[in-house]
Structure formats: structure tokens, C-alpha cells
Write a protein that binds this DNA or RNA. Structure first.
Lengths: 336, 336
DNA sequence: CGCGTTTACGTCGTTCGTAACGATA
DNA sequence: TATCGTTACGAACGACGTAAACGCG
């Protein structure tokens, strides 16, 4: 048995049992891949795949178990390389992050600026998508970190570190009736207006819709989008009242928009950063987590290296209070 | 990186960082091993070992992590072979069992006879030793199953399946005063006589000594041995009263010895069979467990394949009542 | 006949064992 | 000088890629 045979095996599986496609992906010749598979099957004394003529057509029961273990092996091979690289070239490597628009647009810029200044040689890859798309990238082992809100059920193969809380903000054009409200805004007030908010992808059941329903209200959602910038654009057009994540409030918006704090109106959300249980975290990766979730102590970061279950993580952060993230830092002008 | 390099690496570590010894163990040349280590270190870009002159003298920090992962990889390689072998040659393989004398001499013969008749082609290796020696064999990954009583703290890397309970039996020469006792035997009665029993290797603190101490008694242990046959021999010589595991009562003993049930005098013991968490169990191994612990159902056996923590095992057997093992099957004659 | 796999074969790089050399205590 | 590791080198082996054949739809 050779590591290369296992690598080829996984490539075949990951390319729909098409040896030619696997060979292309591996930048090698098709007969070579074919031969190594044959050799592996001969050594193990069994067929890993069922055949239909010459083509591979399915995976045998034992084959499935073997493939699973082969994945584990290749993962550990990567981990060995990681440990070694971390040792002799702390500063070099790559970091792939998958996240949603809100994080990528409003939260990560500061984090990434700081990270880049510290690790100029680490190449960064930011992948953006819905929670489901992020989960797919996780499953394909294409990313190092996933950052999202809620949707924990989609990410059971990751360890999730809770990073911060956030509330919603109501975005309206300047001079909108809601800005003249003397008292605290209520859901009833909101239900009076057409609403513009996120496509309900995160959190499964929309916590937003439920908040209205709990008060017997049915909101008039006239438009949904996946990102706050689009929502704001339509709010500017007067299409309706925007409901966005508090981080999505931009200081620049204040020229023509007013953000109203919606703290308490909707359940508070928690954003987490997650990484695969079975992957070695390099130094710069740990530092990234700490930059993203600054409340995490150096001690906690070091302990994370060895933890392998979500229960361990939960225990580690049990007594930690998460920060609450707002949007525009210039508080005075927001109030004005 | 090649699997062979990892294999060589582990051989070096397991032979006290002596490359020559590792090469001998691997049935290959010393320069070959040396070279592959060099290549591995070059590929990883770091030293796995510290050197003193040319000799290896220690393991670097990162090296230790890498060695650990290499072990995992080689284990999974073995597991892949196991899965394959189980698939195409159910009947062939080997089975190494480490256990104490009592099991090997009195309990396993029946189990192994049955096992051999079912799997004639599986080569059996029975290793005998104290709990500590068994633990060493487990650590060296030399055995498939460990069977012992108590001593759970020594076997945290194994999953332990509780198999049966047993009490002690008191062994005396025929016509001994204790055989003429009209009432139930007590510890006070026993404390009157010199005692012959096991070396206190299993269970750490001797539960036997404690039982006496709890009643303010100090037993006069005149002789200890590691196995019941030796104890019986000395009981026959009139050295003292023997205290042995109930399984150690042999029907043949009745010619010149009398066994007295000591149920209730000492805490009941539980014998378990354990296997490494990280090893694939082959069909014949599962069958062996079932032969050894017949109260385990086929369903439970199948589930064991996927369980990986002791808590899972405990849960699986929570509602199972263990059998109580005695010695000589011919009850009537024992009473006589 | 197109698609995908297997077979055949020449080339090239790697591994292996032997033998000689080097370093250490 | 005994022990242990490295270097050197020729032989054997294995992996790779190209070209051609095969089997299936």
C-alpha cells in the first residue's frame, strides 16, 4: 500500500468514479491512475468498486469503509506537513475562509487588515456564500475557517467558537416617520411598513418571522436580498424599511439613511468561527481566531489546539462573555 | 512522504532511536533506513530528532507530534488491511490475547476450543502475565484482546466489555476443620488460619486485605502466588487455607481438596475483555468476544464495531446482567 | 464511432544491499 | 577499537507517459 494509491483512490471517488477525470485532476496520466487502483485492489485482495463493463459503477461496502480510512490517513499526512511547516516557516502558508456577506463586508476587513500586517506571506482566500454553500465548502475540505451565524446544524463536523453577539438595526431613509417616534420602536410599528430584509437562509426557520408571529403580526416583506448593501439600496429607493445586522450599519450611510437600534425586538444572534475537528491549526490560524474573536485569551487559544469535541469548546468558553457588535463606531453621530 | 518512511520513523522511535536496531527489526539494511529518515526530514524541512554527533539523541517537539500522527496513519493502514481481509478471507487471520493465569487456565480453554472449531485457520497467541505486563503489551500494540479483572485504570486506551462476575472460593485439604463448620463461613473463621492466596497484583489496593481490615482483622497471609495451581499445591501441603477465584475450582481437585463457597465474604469481582479503541474488529474477533461473554447479544456485538468511547460501551451494556461464574460444573459433588 | 478503461512497452527515477568510510566514546 | 551513522555505487524495481487495443453504448 502506498500513500499515492490512497490519494488516487480518493481522487477517483471525488470525481464521480471517473478515472480519466481523476487523472486530469491529479495532473497525471489516466493509465497510471488505473494501474495504481488495480494494484491496490490486488494487494487488498478485493474490489473497492463495482464495475459495469470496464467502468466503475459503485463502491463496495468494504470499499466505503476503506475510503473513509484513506481520507483519515490523507488528512493526517496533511497534518504532519502542517506541523512541520508551522515549525520551520511560521509565517508562510495559506488561509481559506468561507463566510457570509455581512461578515466579509463589514466585520472581516478590519480583522484581515490586521492579519495581513502580521502575516504578509500567508495567502488569503475569502469565499463568500450562503450557510449551505459554506457547509458544502467545509464538506469538500476546501476551507480552513467557516464564519457564520446560527445554522449550527449544518456544521456538525466543525468545532464552533462563539465570537460575538449582534442585534438588528432598522434602516430608513432620513426623515422617515419612524425616525420621529418619541418612544422605543416596537414590532407593531415595523409591521405598519413594507419591509426589506435578508433572504431567510441562515438559522433555518427565520427568527425574524417568528418574532413577528409571536406577537400575532404578519410582516409585509416586500423584498429580500442576501446582502445588506443591496437592502440599503432599496431602502434608499423608498421601497420599504430595512432590517439588517447591526454590523451592517456604515458610518457613510448617515448621509441619507438613519439607523434605529432594534435591540430587544428580535432574538440576539451569535456569530461563530469554526474549523474542522480533524485538522491541525497552525500558529497563524490560531492568531486569526484571536483577531476575529478578541475576547478569546491566549490561554484559551493554546488549549484549542488539543480540543477535539464541541463539548470541550463549550466548556472552555462557558465563563466567557461575548462582546456585542454594533455598526458605525462614531456613536454620537448615529444618535443625532 | 511515503508510508515506508513513516514506518521506518516509528521503528526508529520504538528501538530507542537506534537506526541499526530499527533496520534489523525491519529486516532491511541500516543505510536504507538512515536514508529514508533523511529524505523525510528533508521533505518536511525540519529535524525530527536531535543529534549528538551523528547519533540520534532525542525527539524534537514537532517531531513528537509528527510521530504521534504517523502512528495513527499506520494504525489506519492496518485497519484498511483488516477491513479488506475480513471481506475476502473471513476465516483467516491471527488473534493475540493477553490475560492472567486464572483466565488462561480455567476460563479460556472452553472458549478457545469452541473458537478453534469455528475458525480453524485463525492462529491464536495467548500471552500470560500480570495486569501490568498485559498493560505493557497493550501499549506496544502487540495484542488484540486483553482479559483481566479490575485494574481498569491501567487500560484507559482500551474499550472494556464487562464479561462476568465471580466470587472467591476457599480451598482446604479434605477433612480440614473449616469443612466441619455448621454455619456459614465468616472472615473471622478465616483469620484463624494461615492463608495462601494471590499476589496482590490485580485491583491495585487488594480488595481482599481491605475486606479483612474492614472488620478489624489482620489476616495471616503466609504465602502468595500468581496462580491458583501453585496456591492449591501449597494448600495440599498443609501450608494454609487457600483463597482463589471461584473459576479456579477444578472438579479434579475434589479427590483431596474441598472448596467452600465464599460468596459475600469479599466484594464480587468483574472480569472484562478489552480491545484498542482505534482498531477495526474483524468478524472472528467479534465472535471471540461473544464466546467469552455469551450474554452479549449479536445485536450488541454489531454495535460494538462503531463505538469508540468507554461511555458508549457502558451505555450499551447498562441493562445487561452479567453471569456469575463458578468453578466445577458438577454442583452436587461439590456440595457433598 | 466516441468515451473510458486496460494492455504493452520504453524511459527514467527510486530503492536496496554491499562495501567502504567517518565519527564518537 | 567497537559501535553507529553516512556516503558511494551498481543492480533491480517501480512509476510514468505514450501508443495502441478493447468494450460498451
Amino acid at each position: 500500500m502506498k500513500l499515492q494509491q490512497l490519494k488516487y483512490l480518493l481522487a477517483i471517488v471525488d470525481n464521480g468514479l471517473n478515472i480519466t477525470a481523476a487523472a486530469d485532476r491529479l495532473y497525471t496520466s489516466q493509465p497510471g491512475v488505473s494501474k495504481q487502483l488495480k494494484l491496490l485492489e490486488e494487494e487488498l485482495g478485493m474490489q473497492l468498486f463495482t464495475r459495469k463493463g470496464k467502468s466503475l459503477h459503485g463502491i463496495t461496502d468494504a470499499g466505503a469503509q476503506i475510503i473513509e480510512r484513506a481520507r483519515l490517513i490523507m488528512q493526517e499526512v496533511d497534518n504532519i506537513r502542517s506541523v512541520a511547516s508551522d515549525y520551520y516557516q511560521e509565517e508562510q502558508g495559506s488561509l481559506a475562509i468561507a463566510t457570509t456577506h455581512t461578515q466579509a463586508r463589514y466585520v472581516l476587513p478590519d480583522v484581515i487588515r490586521e492579519f495581513r500586517s502580521r502575516y504578509a506571506k500567508v495567502s488569503l482566500n475569502l469565499h463568500q456564500g450562503t450557510s449551505e454553500q459554506i457547509a458544502d465548502m467545509v464538506a469538500a475540505n476546501e476551507i480552513d475557517f467557516a464564519i457564520a451565524t446560527g445554522s449550527r446544524h449544518l456544521f456538525s463536523s466543525l468545532l464552533l467558537v462563539p465570537s460575538y453577539h449582534w442585534d438588528r438595526k432598522i434602516i430608513v431613509p432620513k426623515g422617515h416617520p419612524l425616525t420621529r417616534l418619541e418612544r422605543k420602536l416596537t414590532l407593531h410599528d415595523l409591521a405598519e411598513f413594507p419591509l426589506v430584509t435578508y433572504v431567510f437562509s441562515f438559522g433555518g426557520q427565520s427568527s425574524l418571522k417568528r418574532a413577528f408571529a409571536d406577537q400575532g403580526l404578519e410582516p409585509d416583506v416586500v423584498f429580500t436580498a442576501r446582502d445588506a448593501d443591496v437592502i440599503k439600496t432599496y431602502v434608499r429607493m423608498g421601497l420599504g424599511v430595512g432590517i439588517v445586522a447591526s454590523m451592517a450599519e456604515d458610518c457613510d450611510d448617515q448621509k441619507d439613511l438613519t439607523a434605529i437600534d432594534a435591540e430587544g425586538l428580535f432574538p440576539r444572534s451569535t456569530t461563530w468561527i469554526g474549523f474542522r475537528k480533524d485538522v491541525v491549526l497552525r500558529r497563524y490560524m490560531l492568531d486569526f481566531v484571536q483577531l476575529f474573536a478578541p475576547h478569546v485569551t491566549a490561554d484559551q487559544i493554546d488549549k484549542m489546539r488539543s480540543l477535539r469535541t464541541q463539548a470541550d469548546i463549550d466548556k472552555l468558553f462557558r465563563d466567557t462573555t461575548l462582546p456585542l457588535r454594533g455598526g458605525c463606531k462614531d456613536k454620537a453621530s448615529v444618535e443625532a
